[in-house]
């Protein structure tokens, strides 16, 4: 499956990935609308959270709005989503995202946009066995 691999020790906390993601999908520079999140830990290091395409949400969705494409990437069909947020609760990595006022959740689809822009090599799109 295709997924966005994170190498947290390379992260410098520039937050460019969040900016790239939210601008690409929501046309605004807003970390709340980014599918990848950068967290600063107490010791000064950074942690990155992003969907690993595990599919727990696929099983939970009552309308089958969440499916897996040929590359193994989990996608949300907005037209089928009834906004129950069950997928958000079921996500074991906390990376099925919502924003205040938003109805349909969103998530990383391993598009590679952030990885291409990352200046420190903390993000790379990879393929792994299912």
């Amino acid at each position: 499956m295709k997924y966005l691999k994170t190498i947290a020790e390379n992260c410098t906390g520039c937050n460019l990935c969040m900016s790239v993601c939210s601008k690409l999908y929501f046309k605004e520079d807003n970390p709340e609308k980014s599918a990848i999140r950068v967290h600063r830990a107490a010791n000064g290091s950074y942690a990155l959270s992003v969907c690993d395409q595990c599919r727990a949400c696929v099983a939970e969705c009552p309308t089958q709005a969440i499916t897996v494409n040929k590359l193994g990437v989990v996608l949300i069909n907005k037209a089928l989503c009834i906004n129950c947020l069950a997928c958000v609760a079921a996500c074991p990595t906390g990376t099925m995202m919502t924003w205040r006022g938003g109805l349909v959740p969103f998530k990383c689809i391993a598009c590679d946009a952030c990885a291409k822009e990352c200046p420190s090599g903390a993000l790379v799109t990879e393929i792994k066995e299912d």
Partner: peptide, 20 residues
């Protein structure tokens, strides 16, 4: 999720998500 046209969607979502 808005079919009831609630007055406070944020509280509704927050409370629902908590129970989920």
């Amino acid at each position: 999720g808005k079919s009831n046209n609630p007055v406070d969607m944020e509280t509704l979502q927050k409370t629902g998500l908590k129970l989920h």
